[in-house]
Design a protein around this nucleic acid. Structure first.
Lengths: 203, 203
DNA sequence: ATCGGTTGCTAACAGGTGTTAGCCGGCCTA
DNA sequence: TAGGCCGGCTAACACCTGTTAGCAACCGAT
């Protein structure tokens, strides 16, 4: 995904305000008139800056995909043990989610309002990103650092437990994003059960 | 939440078809004309059976809430060790998700289209259900069976990793719901990291 | 044969939607 | 001073939305 030119201030503001409304109400339930009102404009004025309602959604979703991939690449480029790379990948993912939780929520839940071919492209990107987690986990299993019977399953549930963050993360909460990231990594990698010699492996 | 009378066949069919469409496209993006067409009717005909579009959503969301609570109650009514109760609660939750993944997806993502007061009631129910998991985990920590610095946080991420199931679970997949439930319970309770003496607690 | 209930169709209602085109005012530059 | 550009308003367009009311057909009971 190529980088895009920085958005002009009004266009960036339209994107931010639209993202907040799409997150709060859903793409389909948010009207252009409502968006315009939130910006102190009339709906017709929006089209001096954007091509269509769907263009906003497209930009938000693909920009977040860019961020996720960039974070993952940065987290896994060093030849560290796989478990350490996985921790870094978790941290990077959480950082993206918490940096812009509105856009993350839109990315996670509103993509289906994209039309073809963008929708298929988006799903292919998402598959590729999940596949990168899958591979990482599979390498960890092969290296004896991780254990799971099914890396694909583990990757999806791991991502699922991270992707909840936009729903309840608050910047003013007592945990910083990095605290959250490390806590999540610890919980997901080590599990909840306390290890007292012998209860591992109990059916 | 009280049980309701069994729905008449056409009404039940409307609920099922609507749920499938709400899940695929979202509540707001699904029109009554589209629903009627899927049922072989005209939109006006729907109102012989239902009061409103939102009534369908209300019924689906609250019925699933009933199912979740019932499952949790059944899972935790015996005086078993807390970790075992948590496993049972996970299994019960997964059972509900996989029994009706369309309704589950609607429950998880479309509730915000409920109007007041139903919306607040729904959120209160959801809080109460999450609170039940929180309490269970807190009791497990107190009993030394579980470890987490934050039971609330652990409960949310645990539920998050379960709630992904409607997005990718397929009845024809090679894993049965119970297989999935036990695998998830194992993964979430035991973590992904392989335990070789000494790596537990590594920062 | 008649009546009541159920169900579906049709047409309409009242309102909302995304988007376009023409116009206007302000600002900047030559 | 004039012209060009930008951005916003307005009104309209073409279409869609959820829902209602009246009507008709069918079925079962009396």
């Amino acid at each position: 995904m190529s980088a895009t030119a920085p958005l002009r201030p009004r266009k960036a503001q339209i994107d931010r305000t639209a993202t907040a409304l799409f997150r709060a109400q859903g793409f389909a339930a948010t009207s252009m008139r409502e968006l315009a009102t939130a910006l102190g404009l009339e709906a017709g004025s929006l089209y001096s800056h954007i091509k269509s309602k769907e263009e906003i959604l497209h930009r938000v979703c693909f920009a977040l995909a860019d961020s996720f991939f960039a974070g993952f690449a940065a987290a896994t480029q060093e030849a560290a043990p796989v478990a350490a790379q996985l921790r870094q990948a978790i941290v990077a993912h959480v950082r993206v989610l918490t940096d812009d939780s509105a856009a993350s929520a839109v990315f996670l839940h509103e993509w289906r309002h994209l039309s073809e071919p963008a929708r298929s492209e988006f799903l292919a990107l998402r598959d590729r990103y999940e596949g990168a987690f899958r591979e990482l986990i599979a390498r960890g299993v092969a290296a004896g650092e991780l254990h799971t019977p099914d890396p694909a399953f583990a990757a999806l549930t791991l991502l699922a437990s991270l992707n909840w963050l936009p729903s309840w993360y608050r910047p003013e909460g007592k945990l910083s994003p990095d605290d959250i990231a490390h806590r999540l990594a610890e919980q997901l990698l080590s599990g909840l059960v306390s290890v007292t010699g012998g209860n591992r492996g109990v059916a």
